[in-house]
Design a protein around this nucleic acid. Sequence first.
RNA 1: GCGCCCAUAGCUCAAUUGGAUAGAGCAACGGACUUCUAAUCCGUAGGUUGCAGGUUCAAUUCCUGCUGGGCGCGCCA
Length: 542
Amino acid sequence: MYLKSLIREKISKKYFDLFGSDPVEFTVEIPPQSFGDYSSNVAMVSAKTLKKSPKIIAQALIDAFQGDAEFELVEMAGPGFLNFKLSNTLYRNLIKKYAKKVDMPKAKPQKIQFEFVSANPTGPLTVGHGRQAVIGDILSRLNTAVGKNVTREYYFNDAGRQMKMLGHSTWIRYNELYGKKFEFEEDDYVADYLVDVAKSISEEYGDRYVNIWNDEVQSFFTSYASKKIFEWIKRTLEKLHVPFDVYFSEQTLYKTGLTDEAMKILKDRGYIYEKDDSTWFAVSKILSNEDDRVIIRKNGEPTYFFSDIAYMLDKYRRGFEKVYYIWGADHHGYIPRMLAVSKALGIPDEFFNVILHQFVTLKSGEEIVRMSKRHGDFVTLEDLIDAVGVDATRYFFAMMDPDTTLVFDVDLAKSKRMDNPVYYVQYAHARISSLMKNAREKGIEYEDASLGSISKDEGTIVREMDEFQDVVIAAIEQQKPQKICNYAYSLSEKFHSYYTDHRIVDPENMERSKDRLKLCTCVKNVLEITLSLIGVSAPDEM
RNA sequence: GCGCCCAUAGCUCAAUUGGAUAGAGCAACGGACUUCUAAUCCGUAGGUUGCAGGUUCAAUUCCUGCUGGGCGCGCCA
């Protein structure tokens, strides 16, 4: 970031001196392969406004750069690129900076919210939830790191029809323990995990509910089962190192009267009407292609959609400038109606944001494990974490673009072979720690390294280090956690390569050893902060 | 039928949100450990970026239309 902005500022200044105006937006980037250390397209993008050919503009800038000691070489290439070769002094200054501290880019201290996972306590978290949890967690970490005030929220419903089915299903399992057979109903949860819940009830309360089914029993089984399952969910999230600030219950919306308030606002604004004994929200009044939706059923019960309306109002009232809903791809159809809600409530457009992610399939060997929650035929997130470890779980969920379906290769995640990217990155960190230990044992102090030996070979690593802030910004702006993983890998790659070619700790050459150890300190610092953003540990030995 | 997402090396993925010769890993082949961790490194081979148009100095990237795959279109969430 520092090197790029230095070059950018210099170009702007020289451009202004030459042409009497500020240049239009241009890039400064690390070019492919051996085109120089940095390159800029400023001459090409300015061709139109200046009515000069790119090559003439480029040449004028190059002439202006003559005699600048911070650059060894500035030259033109291709259709008018400016290529820069940096002086070693610049690299030395940067190493001093990064050895002390890795700066985070700073953003406006907005109050924002990420709402994710939000699974109702009817069953354990699946690997799909895992992907969402990790995406939400990393985006939260990133935004917190750049200075935003982030609330991580989990929304859940612990009443209503779904919950009733849960209670009923548990009761059936409970009766089974006593040899009583009842039939499951249509939307009951037939999965095995409720057997454990039933056993737990049996141990605590004995047989007092066998063969007895009434409202009181229903409500007991529902609340017992949901409480038990919620404990399970929270335990899994803890294992995954995903904390939440707020667990928000849907019921709160009704208790606090926010539902009534939302209804009033929508009514006053003319978005509510009655039809077929139900109450409707006129989505089509805002988005003409969309269908209107029922918010109060014939039987007088509100739909979940109505709760979602009140919930959005609640979020807005709490003073968030932006809220992000993280949803699986199956929810994408929900976006238009929620957008309509935000408009109908008079909430500013930038408030409501959705981050979608595609599905997860598990792969073991050549076999693709398909998951179906209906048949209880799925792998729980907890099982996955137990099998491959939390670091690999998080890294694998994070390293793919949320927009693509993720094939989670369980064998690869488990493997400690060299093709596992988590270990590759962690190994780079461990290697550096080991070098430092080695230096300590030999009594080498490198705090005051002169950096006199730092040159081109180290430049590659320094430039990569200096990409850090830009990568963080890009990951946040584009909502792509995998950018951080790719960066961690790329920096590790450059370090491993450097390590192989250069002796770091060399008693025969103390000055050089100090310089290189200082460089390693920088890489270690950047790797540590990068891994912490992914939520993966940075081990000192492996 | 309508909507969202995806398509890049044999496989899994990148490509700094329009830049130069499209890059890594795995798999294949060949090399590097009496030397700080070989969980590593270096090299060879591998491509009409799904297809067809368009936009411009420049397209994997943007636009249009196809093809193929995933997901969704409930008074379920």
